[in-house]
Design a protein around this nucleic acid. Structure first.
Lengths: 218, 218
DNA sequence: TAGATTGTTAATCGATTAACAATC
DNA sequence: TAGATTGTTAATCGATTAACAATC
């Protein structure tokens, strides 16, 4: 467990990060990972700011609460900053996740590097179409829903990604929750009812557009 | 233009919403739209809270800054609340958007209702594969990049959705910006460099998972 | 009437920002 | 040395929350 620190400017309460800080650190990680992929070695708070729309002072403030990771006049070394943030977020290892739905969206997800880039390994994929069961998808094979419980337990999966039709989403959510999943990433527009100890994250591109449009229109 | 209001508890500065309020109102709209689709007529701030992870008091506070939309002891009428929020966000009409990339992800986007549900009409779709040009996708037809400028001007498009391979993303971004697009919704993990008057929104499911995982692990 | 839920207040806490000395 | 950028302070602003009267 982490060391309890009394005064840190609000980034931690007790030994837990605040929601805001954890969200921002994750954003920095996205930019750093991609910048490294593009061959960059170091980056300034100003550059991170341009890609995240988070104020540069806020970024330096967030980071300096945990140590002096930068070099004045130079910026931050990307490799070491990634390592530091991973340490802070305690997400250094690999995590197995399960994908539900092997349609166009599911296939697009499985063949992209968006999850793998951040240490998430698609360890199981499920579809209710018998014709798809046994077919390869990404680095794994499509399974039927009858193998769900066993695979989730065996691979120690706590994250489920839902890429099923919206009218099937609640049923799949019920099944994965029952099998022990604690975090659901919902690509459908369905509103999911889950127990309080399960977290649901729903992507809603249209919502983000609505709000971007407001600032364009005004 | 809107009426200037002096004192409203911080939800507006001058006649513009603050970023936080606009983002939350968009979230409420997502939940309301989906709740209506599921046949509900009214909803309480507590229910909206459960689906958005935004505090119920905050929700009532946000809404009451613009009028008394609810009924004590009853809740909010979904249809009228949707209309009110659309009025506040000035997004009552239809908006034409353009989709770039007609691969699995692009096809999944075009055939889902996530954009249509919020008034976004995919008025153009582009792919650089000549074999795909002319094929139907969603409610439109795939065009080649040579038709880009004309179509964007003709259909008055200011929003581009990027579902292309990551290594093509910057080039497509450059072209759409040049053609007049002001908002880019980026489904790729690429970091996009654009002029300051263009807004980029990047989806990063893995980032949201990292951060959800942190709160699960601690 | 009794129960439920809004609208609103007041207090606290975290986020944001400008500014600048320190230093690479 | 000159230029750049971090680390940090101080001040302000917006978000969050509990509590509860109003009222459907």
């Amino acid at each position: 467990m982490a060391v309890r620190i009394a005064s840190d400017g609000g980034s931690r309460t007790g030994d837990r990060l605040t929601v805001g800080v954890a969200a921002r650190l994750s954003q920095y990680l996205r930019v750093l990972t991609q910048a490294r992929k593009m061959g960059k070695d170091r980056i300034s708070s100003q550059e991170i700011s341009e890609y995240t729309n988070i104020n540069a002072t806020q970024i330096r403030r967030d980071l300096s609460a945990f140590g002096k990771f930068g070099k004045r006049g130079v910026g931050y070394n990307i490799d070491s900053l990634i390592a530091e943030i991973r340490k802070i977020l305690r997400t250094q290892g690999q995590h197995n996740i399960a994908l539900f739905g092997a349609g166009r969206l599911g296939q697009a997800i499985a063949s992209s590097t968006i999850f793998a880039d951040h240490g998430f390994n698609i360890a199981g994929a499920f579809d209710n179409d018998p014709a798809k069961v046994g077919e390869p998808i990404g680095g794994t094979t499509i399974s039927g829903y009858d193998e769900l419980r066993e695979l989730i337990r065996e691979k120690n999966i706590i994250v489920a990604v839902l890429a099923v039709p919206p009218d099937a989403a609640q049923q799949v959510a019920d099944e994965v929750v029952d099998a022990g999943v604690k975090i659901i990433f919902n690509y459908t527009e369905a509103l999911l009812d889950v127990p309080h100890d399960v977290a649901v994250h729903t992507t809603s591109p249209a919502v983000e557009l609505l709000y971007a449009l407001y600032f364009y229109l005004t």
